[in-house]
Design a protein around this nucleic acid. Structure first.
Length: 390
DNA sequence: TCTGGGGTCCTAGGACCC
DNA sequence: TCTGGGGTCCTAGGACCC
């Protein structure tokens, strides 16, 4: 008997959690994200009511407001979503110990050994949907198939509040004419390269000769073909609510328009560096690798990362390191629309510095954090930031 | 389809050790 | 001292996901 893998995907998770927490939001178009016009920011998520009115994921908040002026904006509350996600995880564990948290709102379950206890995959799925709806007022979509990725794909076809249970033959039939980019793992670049080989559908990829795929894409090509043949038998990983520390912390910002104003660009880089540093300190982390990214929005852009000897959680350090990376890029003058700063190679922050000088700076940073925490972000900012913030 | 802001993961190549 | 194959670790770059 082949495996039974279940994929569970919450519908409009963030917005649903907020609607459950606040009855006044139910049945209304809700947008998660800032409404501010200080920077032009993007929305984080939207309820189905908002989506029905034309709100799309990752829209600029001003654009969303224009399309849907009656929308209710709610600031994102990540802690709340993670908490609910962990509660859902606990419910899922009552059907099988083999539950994998794929993201905050997506899970895989291996229910191959559970159907004996619970009757059938259909029973488990219906029961689960009912319990999650009762406990959290949230609907979810469920797919059951012989492999993880085919289960995930089935969910994609059935959102929201969907349920699709299929065997291998049915998956193969659905895959036959499905565009390859629907596969989790094929983005715009790979899609283009597959199209150049005349591969447009999963059915075509499933038929393609191994050696040519290997030549063009290496193991990735063979793995993607296995997915299209429903032979990607990667196991559902057990994991407890793991609290793995982040591997990188970063911020990026799209400016209102392309600019070559170097002082303005530098103050944005400084602001991003400070924002990243502040979050590192909140998490008690420091990092050695600085990643800097800039793009004019048309011609790709410059991206470079560099690993430094000393870890840091100091915004000024991060800023200086960004400037060094820019020098390495050989760009005397930047023309940018998008800027990004990210720190990786993280370790637990160690505040015992050898040098008193650093200790002093350390205390200043902590004091600034405390003031900002108490009076709101950016009460105290380095003078160079004023141009960008105000 | 891209938008875009937060990330992760994979891989090639260099450095180093035995 | 040179040679070199095999292995591991690290870095940088790129692709992709939600």
């Amino acid at each position: 008997m082949s495996a039974l893998i279940m994929h569970v995907d919450m519908d409009a998770f963030f917005a649903s959690v907020e609607q459950q927490a606040n009855p006044a939001l139910r049945g209304k178009p809700v947008i998660i994200g800032g409404r501010d016009n200080k920077y032009h920011s993007i929305i984080c998520a939207a309820s189905y009511e908002a989506k029905a009115l034309g709100i799309k994921n990752a829209m600029f908040s001003q654009e969303a407001l224009r399309i849907c002026p009656q929308a209710i904006f709610v600031p994102a509350n990540t802690a709340k979503y993670v908490y609910t996600s962990n509660q859902i995880f606990t419910i899922l564990k009552s059907y099988t110990p083999q539950v994998e948290k794929f993201s905050v709102d997506e899970f895989f379950l291996d229910i191959t050994g559970s159907v004996g206890l619970f009757g059938s995959a259909e029973n488990i799925a219906q029961d689960l949907k009912r319990r999650i709806r009762q406990a959290f007022g949230i609907t979810c979509s469920i797919g059951v198939a012989p492999t993880k990725l085919s289960a995930k794909l089935m969910v994609k076809l059935k959102k929201p509040d969907g349920l699709l249970i299929v065997d291998r033959a049915q998956v193969l039939e659905i895959l036959q004419d499905l565009p390859i980019e629907k596969i989790c793992g094929i983005g715009p670049r790979l899609k283009k390269r597959f199209h150049q080989l005349g591969i447009l559908t999963c059915g075509q990829l499933a038929q393609y000769p191994d050696d040519i795929l290997d030549d063009h894409f290496g193991v990735t090509g063979l793995w993607l073909k296995a997915i299209c043949l429903v032979q990607d038998h990667s196991a559902v990983e057990y994991f407890e609510e793991k609290n793995t520390p982040p591997k990188s912390v970063g911020h990026s910002q799209t400016l209102r328009e392309v600019t070559s104003d170097q002082p303005y660009i530098r103050s944005w880089i400084y602001l991003l560096a400070e924002m990243v540093a502040q979050r590192l300190r909140q998490k008690g982390l420091q990092g050695r690798t600085i990643y800097f990214y800039a793009s004019d929005g048309f011609e790709g852009g410059y991206a470079k990362r560099k690993t430094f000897h000393e870890p840091t959680y100091d915004g000024q350090d991060i800023y200086q390191r960004c400037l060094e990376i820019i020098r390495l890029l050989g760009q005397a003058s930047l023309t940018v629309r998008v800027l990004g700063v990210s720190v990786s190679n993280l370790s637990a922050a160690d505040s015992h510095y050898l040098f008193e000088e650093q200790n002093k700076r350390d205390r200043v940073l902590k004091a600034v954090d405390q003031i900002n925490h108490r009076f709101g972000d950016w009460t105290v900012v380095p003078a160079a930031l004023k141009a960008a913030v105000y």
